[in-house]
Amino acid sequence: MWPADIEATARAIIADFTARGLKVATAESCTGGLIAAALTEIAGSSSVVDRGFVTYSNEAKIEMLGVEAATLAAHGAVSRETAAEMAKGALARSGADLAIAVTGIAGPSGGSAEKPVGLVHLAAAGRRGKFVHREMRYGDIGRDAVRLATVRTALGLLGEISQEP
C-alpha cells in the first residue's frame, strides 16, 4: 500500500517505540491522516499509536487541539506557530509521549507568493519539553507527492525527536 521507504521507516518506528514503551499522537491537516495511516499499517502499532487528529479546518484546529484563534489570525494555518500549537495540543489531549503535527499547502491551488504550494510546517513535541520544527518547501510537485513527502519528513522527525534527551 505504501512506498517501500515509508513502510520501512514506519516499521522501524513501531519496533523502536514498542521496545521503549513510547506512544505517539498525530495532528494532521494537509496529510489528512496519512501519517497515522502509515503507522497503523504496521502490525503491532496499537501499542504505539495513541490517537490521531485530522484537523483540516481552522475550527477543528481550535476545537480539537486548542490552537488559539489569535495565532491563526496573526500567522495563518500554515505557519510554524500553528504547527507548534497543534503538536502541543495533541500532547495535551492524548496519552502520548510524542506528537507530530503538520500543516501545509498540498495544492494544486491555495498557494500565494508568501506561502506557495508545497510549503509545509511540521512540528514534533514531547512530554519532557522536546520540540522540533521543520519548514519544508517541496515545490509544486503535485498534491500526492507533497503529501507523501510530508509523511516521509514527519516519520523522520518522529525518529529524531525520540532520540533527544
Rank of each mutant, 00 (worst) to 15 (best):
residue 155 L to M: 12
residue 148 L to Q: 13
residue 131 F to L: 14
residue 58 N to P: 14
residue 143 R to P: 12
residue 109 S to T: 13
residue 19 A to R: 14
residue 6 I to A: 03
residue 140 D to G: 06
residue 139 G to M: 01
residue 90 A to Y: 05
residue 128 R to G: 03
residue 124 A to D: 01
residue 65 L to D: 05
residue 46 S to E: 08
residue 92 A to R: 13
residue 41 E to C: 11
residue 50 D to G: 12
residue 97 D to C: 01
residue 13 I to S: 00
residue 16 D to L: 12
residue 156 G to V: 01
residue 42 I to A: 08
residue 159 G to M: 12
residue 109 S to D: 12
residue 52 G to Y: 07
residue 26 T to Q: 05
residue 112 S to V: 11
residue 123 A to E: 07
residue 50 D to Q: 06
residue 78 V to Y: 08
residue 38 A to W: 04
residue 147 R to Y: 03
residue 108 P to I: 07
residue 56 Y to I: 06
residue 45 S to A: 13
residue 109 S to K: 01
residue 152 R to P: 04
residue 12 A to T: 09
residue 95 G to D: 10
residue 78 V to E: 13
residue 30 C to E: 02
residue 43 A to H: 07
residue 49 V to M: 13
residue 8 A to F: 00
residue 115 K to F: 08
residue 95 G to W: 03
residue 5 D to E: 15
residue 107 G to W: 05
residue 10 A to H: 03
residue 32 G to Y: 03
residue 55 T to W: 00
residue 9 T to F: 00
residue 12 A to K: 11
residue 129 G to M: 01
residue 40 T to K: 06
residue 89 G to H: 03
residue 113 A to N: 12
residue 116 P to R: 06
residue 39 L to W: 11
residue 122 L to E: 01
residue 148 L to P: 00
residue 151 V to G: 01
residue 88 K to N: 10
residue 13 I to W: 00
residue 44 G to F: 11
residue 72 L to D: 04
residue 147 R to P: 01
residue 102 V to K: 03
residue 157 L to Y: 00
residue 101 A to E: 02
residue 135 E to D: 09
residue 93 R to K: 14
residue 87 A to K: 08
residue 104 G to T: 06
residue 45 S to V: 03
residue 156 G to A: 06
residue 66 G to D: 06
residue 70 A to P: 02
residue 72 L to I: 15
residue 96 A to Q: 02
residue 98 L to H: 03
residue 158 L to E: 00
residue 81 E to P: 03
residue 47 S to C: 07
residue 151 V to R: 05
residue 70 A to C: 07
residue 89 G to I: 13
residue 1 M to P: 15
residue 162 S to V: 04
residue 151 V to Q: 02
residue 120 V to L: 10
residue 84 A to Q: 12
residue 7 E to V: 12
residue 141 I to T: 00
residue 35 I to A: 01
residue 33 G to A: 12
residue 10 A to T: 01
residue 85 E to K: 03
residue 143 R to F: 14
residue 61 K to C: 13
residue 42 I to Q: 02
residue 109 S to A: 14
residue 19 A to F: 09
residue 165 P to V: 12
residue 59 E to M: 04
residue 111 G to K: 05
residue 131 F to M: 14
residue 121 H to F: 15
residue 133 H to K: 05
residue 137 R to D: 05
residue 110 G to V: 03
residue 120 V to D: 08
residue 152 R to A: 08
residue 101 A to C: 11
residue 142 G to M: 12
residue 134 R to Q: 15
residue 151 V to K: 05
residue 105 I to S: 09
